[in-house]
Amino acid sequence: MKKFLFIALAAIALSSCADVSGALFAGGDGTYDFKNTYLDPEFQVDESKIHLLDLESGTQDTIYALYVGDFAQIATDTIIVFLHGNTPSMDSYWQTAGLFANLVNNHHYGFIMYDYRGFGWSTGRSTGAESMAADYDAVLSFLQSQGLTSERMVVVANSLGSLPAGPAAAGGSRIPVQKLVMEVPQSTANVIMQNATGLSLPASMITSYKFDLGQNMEDYTGELLWMHGTEDAVAPIETAEAAMQKHQGTYYQEAVYDGAGHGLRWDIGDEEWSKVVLDFIRH
């Protein structure tokens, strides 16, 4: 027994503070070469309406955001706040920006997306709930200063973006979220651990990042659109469904597509994707 206790105590002393969330954030370089050259013809934008912003996040870091539209629009029109998925930078979502900039017609809605810390040119490193919330708040602070109000904000979260979007919708947003689109969201940190091991291990065995989108949706009172593909190998539909269906807010809509994977928009096509999102925004 003494030997066992010695080994156990020694193991605790030797244990590392490494956190697997650092491995799951796929931040990398960005070029931010946002030009019409790289957009499909139907997604062309007025290049004078492309604005790259640097915003202070927390006390030490600077994050970069892309706003497409007129700044004056922020005080009067609907603004899409897009939280992108786990790619090195928001470069990968330039087509998405073009699509949103052409929803309804050219520059009907304002659109903003940003890079989390450690993604693209954003400084620092994403580490979990705190850094993700601070980055989101930096963007919301800018939008609030420009006059954005709750009833004109639509938050669209893709995959990794669902992690900061969940707590924001659950009350952690300086501009309360009333309309939320969760596209191919994850579910809980525990699920990631349990899907990786096949055991009932909690996420705290490997990370301090304890997100729980099910709880967030339970606490979110606004409108929710959940979009997912049945063949999603990155965010399994069973657990995402369980988390999203905890939503008790004012309106719930789901769009589930047989055979579609994690690249949902590419699998179902821009037309279907835009129709569903637009119907929700106008609901």
Binding site: F4, I7, A8, A11, I12, L14, S15, S16, C17, A18, D19, V20, M205, I206, T207
Partner: peptide, 17 residues
Amino acid sequence: GGIQFSSLLLGAVQLEG
């Protein structure tokens, strides 16, 4: 009896016997 250093790296003590 054994110990898994891989788990220790991530902050979990894993002992077996």
